[in-house]
């Protein structure tokens, strides 16, 4: 259960940083900018070897926020490089994230077939 606790803390903490980036940059920063910034930061931290310790601590708390997507892209590239050489640099990122990306495309398509936007509030 301690893993769930740390996932909560790390995941919540990353979201707080993103929220602050959004709120303190009022009018100039949109959620899209924050998400792009997060994935870039995740990739850079991963390259510097700083993101893996966060994953070790927070588990899903570090992999589920979109920074984890940047981390997965970098780690995938580096892993495929060791397996396939330089071409792995180009294949690794998508290999590592293929499951998620395919899932989201297929589910998005299916959802659009079955559902319509709803009105509330």
């Amino acid at each position: 259960m301690i893993t769930v606790f740390w996932a909560f803390i790390v995941g919540g903490g990353l979201c707080v940083l993103a929220q602050l980036a959004l709120d303190l940059g009022v009018g100039k920063v949109t959620p899209a900018h924050v998400l792009v910034g997060a994935v870039v930061v995740g990739a850079i931290l991963s390259g510097l070897g700083l993101y893996s310790p966060l994953v070790a601590l927070g588990g899903a708390g570090a992999t589920i926020p979109i920074l984890g997507f940047g981390h997965a892209l970098v780690q995938g590239s580096l892993r495929d490089f060791t397996l396939r050489g330089w071409v792995g640099l180009l294949t690794g990122g998508f290999t590592a994230t293929a499951l998620g990306l395919s899932t989201v495309v297929i589910l998005g398509f299916l959802a659009a077939l079955l559902f319509n936007p709803k009105r509330k509030y």
Binding site: V4, F5, F8, I9, G12, V16, L20, G59, I64
Partner: peptide, 19 residues
């Protein structure tokens, strides 16, 4: 900040349960 922490933390904690 508080709502972001609670929401984000809950989602990632649930993800950890799945993991």
């Amino acid at each position: 900040t508080v709502t972001a922490f609670i929401t984000g933390g809950t989602i990632t904690a649930l993800a950890q349960l799945v993991m």
